[in-house]
């Protein structure tokens, strides 16, 4: 169990105080996967680095399994860190060591015997599926393989917590999924608590049970993933979710866009589905009830935690009256509609 209590972090730059974190409170259950999402510069990296005190909080406490890390001496902290694994965006593997020796490093630090190291490292390499790469140097591995080595290394000292600092941010989507799959596997097999920070919604959606949104160093919202994405309570959370979904108007549509309706032009609308939206097949109902044809230009819909949400860009072909009625119908069903203009 990780408890982050009233954590503040202030950096001083050229005599100016910069509040990287303001009054952060979080409580993460043992064995759960917790995500912190925020755009770059929001302070999420500082937050995760505060958890193992790579960055010392200016105030507040970090409590892991009942021990307040901020109160430990340097030596005690060093030993406690062996129970907190960490993986990084840029893997941070030692180029001078083979895959085997990289994974063995935490064990060497703890002065484990050679035989035990061999046994442990081999079982870890099997867990992450890299048995055949044992004698390879990191320079000859792909990004995904490097992160697997880093995960094996982080697990070597049997940690209770795994911190993932943008662990998939430099990987392609397919590799990201395979790394997330591995994290999910070790989470369930080892009952490991995972705290991960990311700017990718796909990561949070794919693996986290709980999520916290952080913006400008402040905790904006937190809760179960489905709830947050479906019913964002704060404007900041909403903006953030929208930014991850954002649909831009294609350039050729933008060129043909008029502010008012003229002859032979049709409305371009943006529909926003949230958790509050009525869960009925509204698009086909619209078409039937109001005799309009709907052309979907682009859409970004998702299904998380039992709710549909997302954005859709569409053109309503029909009479002016029908279009107005259709918009009213959508609003009744709690779909947010914005008429962006009229396309010739």
């Amino acid at each position: 169990m990780i408890q982050i209590k009233k954590v503040n972090k202030v950096f001083y730059q050229a005599g100016r105080a910069i509040h990287a974190l303001s009054d952060i409170n979080l409580s993460i259950e043992q064995g759960s996967i917790f995500g912190v999402i925020g755009s770059s510069g929001a302070g999420k990296s500082t937050l995760i680095r505060c958890v193992n005190l790579l960055e010392r909080p200016s105030s507040g406490s970090i409590i892991i399994d009942g021990v307040d890390l901020t109160k430990l001496s340097t030596q005690e902290l060093t030993l406690t860190r062996r129970k907190i694994g960490m993986i990084f965006q840029h893997f941070n593997l030692l180029s001078s060591r083979t895959v085997f020796d990289n994974v063995a490093l935490p064990l060497e630090l703890a002065a484990v015997s050679k035989d035990k190291i061999k046994e442990k490292v081999n079982s870890l390499l099997e867990l992450v599926g890299l048995t055949d790469k044992s004698d390879t140097y990191p320079a000859n591995l792909s990004g995904g393989q490097k992160q697997r080595v880093a995960i094996a290394r982080a697990l070597a000292s049997d940690p209770v917590v795994l911190l993932c600092d943008e662990a998939t941010s430099s990987l392609d989507p397919a590799t990201t999924q395979s790394i997330l799959e591995l994290l999910r596997k070790i989470n369930s097999e080892l009952n490991l608590t995972i705290l991960l920070i990311t700017h990718e919604m796909a990561v949070v959606k794919g693996i986290c049970a709980q999520v916290a949104i952080i913006g400008d160093g402040k905790m904006v919202e937190k809760g179960p993933v489905g709830d947050i994405f479906a019913h964002p309570k704060t404007e900041l959370a909403r903006q953030f979710i929208r930014s991850t979904l954002d649909l831009t108007i294609p350039a050729d549509y933008r060129a043909r866009l008029l502010p008012t309706r003229v002859e032979k032009s049709f409305p371009l609308v943006r529909l926003e589905f949230t958790g509050a939206s009525v869960d009925t097949p509204v698009i086909s109902q619209l078409a039937r009830q109001f005799d309009i044809d709907i052309s979907i230009i682009s859409s970004n819909m998702d299904y998380v935690g039992g709710v549909k949400f997302g954005l859709m860009l569409a053109e309503f072909f029909g009479t002016e009256d029908a279009a107005l009625k259709a918009v009213a119908f959508l609003k009744e069903h709690n779909v947010e509609v914005e008429v962006l203009g009229y396309v010739i």
């Binding site: 193992n52 060093t78 860190r81 990084f88 840029h90 941070n92 030692l94 001078s96 630090l109 000292s157």
Partner: peptide, 29 residues
């Protein structure tokens, strides 16, 4: 030597002397 490597070593509970002998020197060799 990338500072991230020293950080990773610190995060895995390496003492300063271990960071020098097991990370800094081999990486700077």
């Amino acid at each position: 030597v990338p500072s991230g490597l020293v950080e990773a070593a610190q995060a895995m509970g390496a003492k300063p002397a271990q960071i020098i002998t097991k990370v800094l020197l081999p990486e700077a060799l």
